[in-house]
Design a protein around this nucleic acid. Structure first.
Length: 204
DNA sequence: GAGTAGATCCTCT
DNA sequence: GAGGATCTACTCA
């Protein structure tokens, strides 16, 4: 298992990066507790031309400044006052592309995930959805703007590959305010995974 | 099973 | 001062 290099993140096509992130492993370590999960759902946010992105139209604020950094760093922010959302910044410096990680399949540290989320046991909802996965992995806004080469938070490849058949594509979720851009097929997910959000595959 | 409302707070205007 | 890249629980059928 090896960490993804900066070259992986700094490619120009954010859609390709998003699709390639499926099957990769997100690892966090805080206070010696390691939690990890395989990415089964993510969405691409294509910078200035994407109305759904925080950087739409070249908007630049203290919060989204990190999106303009070279690819390979994290962007975490608070949404709706209670959910932390984890993004991976991609592309080169000054190009604010990012990929939102929406769902994981738990692989390690399940006990810690259960404890953090206050659930009684591991079930398919524990890392389903962007708000849930950050909670399970202990990701907060303290993790924003840090390098994905750091030992506390990184993405890794264990040579697991999904086939084209297993990968689904759809419009993004929860961005109705973005007008026409809400319809863009920028969401990638693993078909049949019980951890993918937005569908009621099997909640019980 | 489907639809709706409430929680809750940081960020930008 | 308004609103958001969400989630859950509750209502109603």
């Amino acid at each position: 298992m090896r960490k993804l290099s900066e070259n992986f993140y700094q490619r120009k096509n954010v859609l390709q990066v998003a699709e390639d992130l499926l099957g990769k492993i997100l690892v966090t370590q805080c206070n010696t507790i390691i939690t990890a999960g395989r990415i089964v759902e993510c969405e691409a946010y294509a910078g200035v031309s994407d109305k759904a992105s925080h950087a739409a139209g070249g908007k630049r604020t203290p919060r989204n400044e990190i999106m303009y950094a070279p690819g390979g760093v994290s962007y975490v922010y608070l949404c709706y006052g209670m959910h932390h959302l984890f993004n991976v910044v991609t592309n080169k410096k000054e190009i604010p592309h990012a990929v939102l990680i929406r769902a994981l399949e738990p692989m390690a540290g399940m006990a810690a995930m259960v404890q953090r989320t206050g659930k009684k046991e591991t079930d398919s909802t524990i890392t389903k959805g962007p708000g849930n996965l950050t909670k399970a992995l202990g990701i907060t806004t303290n993790h924003t703007a840090i390098s994905l080469q750091s030992p506390d938070l990184y993405l890794a490849d264990d040579n697991h590959h999904y086939t084209k058949k297993e990968i689904g594509v759809s419009p993004r979720i929860g961005i109705d305010y973005a007008g026409d851009d809400a319809l863009l097929p920028y969401r990638f997910y693993i078909k049949n995974s019980p951890y993918v959000s937005g569908k009621k595959w099997l909640t019980k």
